[in-house]
Every structure is written in C-alpha cells, then in structure tokens.
C-alpha cells in the first residue's frame, strides 16, 4: 500500500491504495465518483477519460500511485451546481448522446480538444475523437455538439 494525495475536482484526498490499482478504479470505488465510466479493458473506448494536470488521459491506463500529487478533473467537476458546463449544455441541446455511457469521456476529451480553437473543423473534431468510441449516435450529433461549444469557446471556463 502507498499513501497518495491528489486533488480531485478541487478537493484534496489522501488515501492508501494498493500499487496496482488503476486510477479509474480509485476514482470510482474509493472516491465514489462513478461518472467516470469503464467501457472496455483494452484502453480503447475512452469512457474513462479525465483531465490530469489539464491534459486528457484514459484513467483506466494509469495507476492511482502515478497520479500522486496531481490535479484531477472528472465529469462531476464540470457543472456549477445546477448550471451545466458549456460543453455539457451543448451535448444536451444538440442531442449529443443516446444511451449516455460514452458521454463523460466524450465531454472530457472534447473540452481539451477545442481549447483555443473556436474555428475547429469537423474533420479535426472527428480525428480528435479517435480515442472515444460511441456505439449509439454514429457521432453526428456529438460532432455537432462540440462544434457548437467551440463557437461559444469564449464563454468556456476551464476549471
């Protein structure tokens, strides 16, 4: 067991973890933040994407001990109470989801993807989502949501 201290959604946690525990399992089972999903065991689906020190990563392909001292942002850290994050709102308004399983990862990836790119093209968005799989939507409305959020990028605050 190793003691790790990390900040998740602005709150500091210190916990003992087994060294082989994945960051995704730590977030879900220790911190009970179950918005971060686990959709595969091959690191391909992207449902578990979070931000680690501002960069999008697959939390199922990193150990909790490796995140010691880091700043983590999960889907739960986006909304301000009942006020959705602009990317969440764009998904909501553009019907950017069906079953919703991939959505937390999609949104976390999308926020990083459009940072500083209000004019991001459809092609760039599709390429930027290579690491996120959706089995329902055919991606059309996901791309539409992200494009709209990018246009409103000035309003985006990255907390």
């Amino acid at each position: 067991m190793t003691e790790v201290t990390l900040t998740v959604n602005g709150k500091k946690y210190t916990q003992n973890v087994f060294d082989h525990v994945l960051l995704s399992d730590f977030i879900r089972e220790k911190l009970k933040l179950t918005g971060t999903h686990i959709g595969c065991d091959t690191s391909q689906c992207g449902a578990c994407v979070i931000h680690l020190d501002g960069k999008s990563i697959k939390s199922c392909t990193m150990l909790a001990v490796q995140a010691d001292g880091c700043d983590v942002l999960t889907i739960e850290g986006l909304a301000d109470g009942d006020v959705l994050h602009p990317m969440q709102r764009a998904f909501h308004e553009n019907h950017g989801l069906q079953c919703g399983f991939c959505t937390p990862g999609m949104i976390m990836s999308a926020i990083e993807l459009i940072k500083g790119k209000p004019d991001i093209t459809e092609q760039e968005i599709r390429q930027g989502l290579e690491g996120n799989l959706c089995r329902c939507t055919g991606y059309q409305n996901i791309v539409k949501s992200i494009q709209e959020a990018a246009k409103n990028e000035n309003n985006l605050t990255n907390r």
Binding site: S43, G46, V49, K55, S56, I57, K58, T61, M62, S109, E112, L113, G128, E130, G131, N132
Partner: peptide, 9 residues
C-alpha cells in the same frame, strides 16, 4: 500516433 489520450501519456 494512437489517439489523443495515448499521445498525452
């Protein structure tokens, strides 16, 4: 290489 998240790690 890979996808965005792979490139970040």
């Amino acid at each position: 290489i890979g996808d965005r998240q792979v490139r970040n790690r």
